[in-house]
């Protein structure tokens, strides 16, 4: 096993939307430089959980959280600056959401809000991020064209590049390929394998083949509970819990 301390250590996490409990006593840890897939039927809490990790749930009124999430050993609900957390823990959303500006400006947006002003440094960052996101060759001739002119798959890789440009440590991905065609999906899956070397990745997916293809460990959520969390191979071929087996074999969800 990995001798390094876990990237995230989730302990007895409960979360309520008003009166509704969305997460129930979730506890597990995520190792660095791994891809963790979160699967489960719609409304099971996997996306909610993902959004806890960079505290995007703060934006929703009436959310209450109990328990703790340690990121590099530090509680993310503690004194930690949420801006700093979101810089370290980047998020890619289900639907590509490029800003209505040029490709270049989209990538440079993150570094800029964190105070990078030097044009040369920004240009280097933009290029490096696009290369990392395997998009550079496709867009290098139109960096100053509107980002909304790209195809859906390109837009999603642009969003990944945009996150990479702020030099994060963790990538959270909320069903990043659900709005894309199979070819774009394949490109992004290949990309994930590359990115794993430098980043810790947590990906929520509805697509179980995808979870099987890309992830090292998989967590199965049901009704707000983490039913099972194990190496992906075990989840798919040797589930311990009956509910996991039922879900995997397509009996519900």
């Amino acid at each position: 096993m990995d001798p390094r301390p876990p990237k995230f250590d989730v302990r007895h996490l409960d979360l309520w939307y008003g009166q509704t409990q969305a997460l129930k006593d979730v506890s597990f840890s995520i190792d660095p430089n791994t891809i963790t897939a979160l699967i489960g039927p719609s409304g099971c809490g996997k996306s909610t959980f993902l959004r806890v990790l960079d505290r995007m749930n703060d934006l929703i009124e009436g959310v209450r959280v109990e328990g703790s999430v340690l990121y590099d050993g530090e509680d993310i609900f503690g004194d930690r600056d949420v801006i700093e957390l979101r810089k370290r823990v980047g998020m890619v959303f289900q639907k590509p959401n490029p800003f209505p500006m040029s490709i270049w400006d989209n990538i440079a947006y993150g570094p800029r809000v964190h105070g990078v002003k030097d044009k040369k440094a920004l240009s280097d960052l933009v290029e490096r991020s696009l290369v990392q996101a395997a998009l550079f060759d496709e867009v290098k001739d139109r960096l100053h064209k509107p980002a909304l002119g790209l195809s859906g798959g390109q837009q999603q890789r642009l969003c990944i590049a945009r996150v990479l440009a702020v030099e994060p440590d963790v990538l959270l991905m909320d069903e990043p390929t659900s709005a894309l065609d199979p070819i774009s999906t394949a490109k992004i899956e290949t990309l994930l394998d590359e990115l794993k070397r430098r980043y810790t990745i947590v990906i929520v997916t509805h697509n179980m083949q995808q979870a099987g293809r890309v992830s090292d460990r998989t967590g199965f959520f049901l009704h707000g509970e983490l039913v099972e969390y194990a190496p992906t191979r075990d989840i798919f071929f040797n589930p311990r819990d009956e509910r996991t087996e039922n879900y995997i074999s397509g009996r519900f969800g």
Binding site: R86, M91, F93, V113, R162, V163
Partner: peptide, 20 residues
């Protein structure tokens, strides 16, 4: 999604409003 995209990059609310 645009607001969330900006906030998730670590932008403040004011930056998000002004720039996005």
């Amino acid at each position: 999604a645009l607001r969330e995209g900006s906030l998730a990059l670590g932008a403040t609310k004011l930056q998000t409003i002004a720039k996005v």
